[in-house]
Amino acid sequence: MRIVKYEDIVKSIRDMIIYSTTHLSPDMKKALEEAYENEKSEVSKAVLKQILDNAKIAENEWKPLCQDTGLAIYFVKVGEDVKVEGGTLKDAIFEGTEKGYKEGYLRASTCDCFTRANLKDKVGYNLPPVIYFDIVPGDKIEIEYAAKGGGSENVSRATVLAPAAGKEGIKEFVKKVVSDAGPNPCPPLVVGVGIGGSFDYAAVMSKHALFRDIGTENPDPELNELEKELKDELNKLGIGAMGMGGTETVLAVHIETFQPGRMCHIASLPVAVNIQCHSSRHSHITI
């Protein structure tokens, strides 16, 4: 059994949060630069220029790319042969999150659902994070993190289609979600699509799809094709950067299905669309 120290996890998470909220990831930078090159509308091009300039300033000054430093989202794979010493893994993630957000001068964006009060002294600074745990073979802990902003989360949608709706029904649903969202979620977007599983699990997969690096292929050739088709069709909506009209609305579409075998219940076709703004702050560490 491999031993990992609690404090080491706290520190790794803290550092990952501060770095990735101030440094645009290489895949996003490349995708935005390509969008800037390809954009045909003058006003959207000017917006993309501002977004790229912003990334430079943020990186040089370690200043948050966006003031909405998000709800902290984690997907954690815990090896069966690893043990945390000095505390629990969950506590370490909570503590690392609080430290990262506080010491990085990031915004505490969590509040009570009803009173809307910020409970940073009672519950914790930007706590709680959303954590999905999975148990895997091996002696490593793999932690994926994203700072998920509210604007793009607000326009995300999930549904359960009738099986007869098929692939066309899925495409129609994705297009409707992006079209209805218009300028609100800060395009150009990354569109995460979860297909199959259950109502709730489709949504989880749609979120996890956002962690995949842009420019990587879907290992399923049929889905890879569908991603490209959807991207082209979504870019024809004309929404453009910040919704001001243009040809570059979507940087990538990423699809995840319920594995093994792209499965769901015989009566259902669950589909979820999680929208990600152009300030996609995602990162991962292996401990």
Binding site: N54, I57, P64, C66, M242
Partner: peptide, 10 residues
């Protein structure tokens, strides 16, 4: 409209 996500620049 200001550019969302251009927060360090603004």
């Amino acid at each position: 409209g200001a550019v969302g996500g251009a927060a360090a620049l603004i």
